[in-house]
Design a protein around this nucleic acid. Sequence first.
DNA 1: CTGTTAGCGCTTTCAT
DNA 2: ATGAAAGCGCTAACAG
Lengths: 332, 332
Amino acid sequence: LPATYKDIKRLTGLSLSTISKYFNGGNVRPQTMEAIEAAAQKLDFRINDFARGLKSGRSMSVGVLIPELNSSFHTTIMRQVGQFLRQRGYSCLVCECNADKSIEREALSFLVDKMVDGIITIPLDSSGSHLELARARNVPVVLVDRKTTAFETDAVLIDNFSAGKMAAEFFIERGHSRAAIISGPSGIYTMSERSRGFAWAFKERCSGADVKTLEVDFSIEGGYQAAKELLINGSDITCVFCPNYEITLGAVTAMNELKVRYPQDISLIGFDNMELSKVLNPSLTIVEQPMQEIAKLAAQLLIDRLEKKDDSDVKTITLPAKITMGKSVAVL
Amino acid sequence: LPATYKDIKRLTGLSLSTISKYFNGGNVRPQTMEAIEAAAQKLDFRINDFARGLKSGRSMSVGVLIPELNSSFHTTIMRQVGQFLRQRGYSCLVCECNADKSIEREALSFLVDKMVDGIITIPLDSSGSHLELARARNVPVVLVDRKTTAFETDAVLIDNFSAGKMAAEFFIERGHSRAAIISGPSGIYTMSERSRGFAWAFKERCSGADVKTLEVDFSIEGGYQAAKELLINGSDITCVFCPNYEITLGAVTAMNELKVRYPQDISLIGFDNMELSKVLNPSLTIVEQPMQEIAKLAAQLLIDRLEKKDDSDVKTITLPAKITMGKSVAVL
DNA sequence: CTGTTAGCGCTTTCAT
DNA sequence: ATGAAAGCGCTAACAG
């Protein structure tokens, strides 16, 4: 049975309040501290987080809620956020909602029940209505990657429009004018922005351009099917942009299967995940997000809110993406 | 301010114990239930997990402690375990220890402090001495993937020796006799077993065989360096076995860089991760673990312990691996 | 089936 | 700097 303050009291003769004060960083005199330390050591004392939380109303934990833990981007964000938060004394409760809105709602309610002090989330439901519950409970929320339309709160994003534009310009500069983008669901903020940027650049910077937009499920399978369709019937397309990691994976798989080679037969730009880019041969040209920075900023922003170091208005931090050159785009 | 039993009492006139009973699945009469439900609804009542945990001594949460969240295998296990546990009403606290033993020890102590009811872990410290703390606190532990030498508890593993043997036999059957294995640290149980199985099969089933064993760091970089070294100086090797996912990734990257092609120049068998196998061209022959089953069995075992449905002696469940054929092994 | 009662281990005024 | 006392929200006998 775990030791409690009472046991320490028994060994030291001190009162509960003095002991509590010590464990909360208050001033006690050296000999008191030594006595408590010795007793705690001897008893293998560890503070009871439930009792503390019950009394103080804070859990020193934050909830991380993301769509899918098998998405490389989401997992990376989650890890970095967790690492940073832990350094600052907070623990993380991680939930994934399997890309299902009703699970997302449940998960949020679960986190609130667990008394998390704050929430960092990549929202699935783009309205963000599920987040109202957090607000009702006074739990601050920081959005990552996507903004919500009906719920205003702090957010850390990349400039997705520019990311799409970048990919388009990379193609245009190398002589391409007939392009396709295999986009995820247009209801997803990042996807529609990247598509918009891609199409805009071709329209604006390349006369006589033709951009096909395929909209698929947000998965490897989706990318795979769309690429197959495109390669079989896509006739005169010379280049394809895959604006997320899973779609990229699916598209490459389809090309392998159909023995279509890049960059010879068709040019390709992928998204995220440097490692994939390098194991592939030829290597892939990709648009990359500064994941570590995104995570760090989100965590910092949340902590600042929790600790009242920042009580400014809702703020959105926008970071740039960058393009990393591989060998998957032909010069026409 | 969140509502409590007191508020429900005020609205319904019922006693706290009746209300508590209802929320814990006890029998109350229909009209009582309706009254409580209505009040709870109206008040937006949610039970306070801290108070409940403090009183009951159970948190309905389990700790998951793994070496690295950027390892595809570890992440997959963690997800599956989490999913299964959540279905059963438990939540998960996930910690990674960045492959550092002292962090692992801290993380364990952190989980115990958070009052997890049980722990599922892929142990890094192969002695398992850090797990003593859990035992001292009466927190059951289930090991996944690796066994500990100095701490006996339930475990779910694959037959790693056979996995290595399988890879070797696949090579042998296709006429290979000069092989290499790029193994992870021999202190890691899985790695030494897979190596042992690999070497054993060549020795036993292939006269005049020659097996080089390289031991590297447990990382993409490790696999990359070793493969490079092997390809530059390895002279007469005709095939390589990479007994984990990260090493496989590194090895393929090295081959791309040196323009060494498989299966023409050298044959290759990788480990884990079907997806990688398919995006690569040619596709990879890999040894696969039944991850979903591993996770499910581990979670089930822990729950059975927690709920006293199983009070048998410590048990170890061993599952078979299987080989999935790709196009990365040449027939000599 | 329902109510009364006594804490769980900690924090936090308020005194001293 | 330390102590006494009250109570956070819930559970679990026990009695009715």
